[in-house]
């Protein structure tokens, strides 16, 4: 590996040729990075929906739920990665510890967003829906949640992008994702001559991935809210 490194330029801008030389390995890293960024957000949303509903429905539960979720988010990611296996009786290097940690972060972010999104439904609309004869569940699914979509979408964008960066941290402790490129770059550097290409490649791919996922969330949000564009137009 190090002999190979000597043959190519160590300039930051030669990340492209580094990528072409290690294409299949790098794409593998990108792919697992993508999954690790997306799946926990989806799981996080599924868990945050009932919690957010609860804290919106029963106002006494809002402050404690928000405090706990805020505290969860302040736990440093490395600490959480390390804490999860003993807490959940998993292997020290279980495949699950990173997705679980990321799901915790996603829940922490999304609970507030779901609660505030449901809270954004106007009192008039709420009242009309009830008076018209929606059952509570039907009202939640057909009125409250659809109207909450713009607020929830805004939260999903933050969650998915922050996950892309937290996943990279998991890469530095040995999990397979774009974070490995940083470790590789660090290992290939020697004292006075840093080796930039894999580090820059990791950065570029992370940014591209974050932008792409963000765009997907925006598109999905737009698809679900044709009424917002009509209102502006």
């Amino acid at each position: 590996m190090s002999g190979f490194a000597n043959e190519v330029s160590s300039s930051p801008l030669s990340f492209w040729s580094y990528f072409m030389d290690h294409r299949s390995a790098d794409l593998q890293l990108l792919w697992s990075h993508t999954w690790l960024s997306v799946v926990p957000v989806v799981l996080g949303l599924v868990i945050a929906l009932p919690l957010g509903w609860l804290s919106n429905r029963f106002s006494w539960s809002y402050p404690p739920i928000m405090t706990v979720s805020g505290l969860l988010y302040t736990i440093p990611s490395i600490a959480l990665f390390v804490l999860i296996p003993p807490l959940l009786h998993l292997d020290q290097l279980s495949e699950l510890q990173v997705p679980i940690a990321l799901t915790v972060y996603s829940v922490a972010l999304l609970v507030r967003v779901v609660a505030d999104g449901l809270g954004s439904v106007s009192e008039d609309t709420r009242q009309a829906a009830t008076a018209i004869g929606f059952t509570p569940l039907a009202r939640l699914l057909k009125v409250d949640l659809p109207i909450a979509v713009p607020v929830i979408t805004a939260g999903l964008r933050v969650a998915v992008v922050s996950n892309v960066s937290i996943v990279a941290i998991a890469g530095t402790i040995g999990f397979q994702n774009l974070g490995n490129l940083f470790t590789t770059g660090y290992q290939l550097s020697s004292g006075t001559s840093p080796y930039y290409p894999p580090i820059v490649l990791g950065l570029v791919l992370c940014v591209i991935l974050a932008l792409a996922l963000d765009a997907l969330v925006i598109l999905a949000g737009r698809g679900l809210t044709p009424w917002r564009r009509a209102a502006r137009g």
Partner: peptide, 19 residues
């Protein structure tokens, strides 16, 4: 919900479903 579906209801700001 049965009762309410048989009773029309109109409020001050209409309370239409924006979506």
């Amino acid at each position: 919900h049965e009762l309410r579906r048989r009773i029309g209801y109109v409020i001050q700001h209409a309370g239409l479903f924006p979506h």
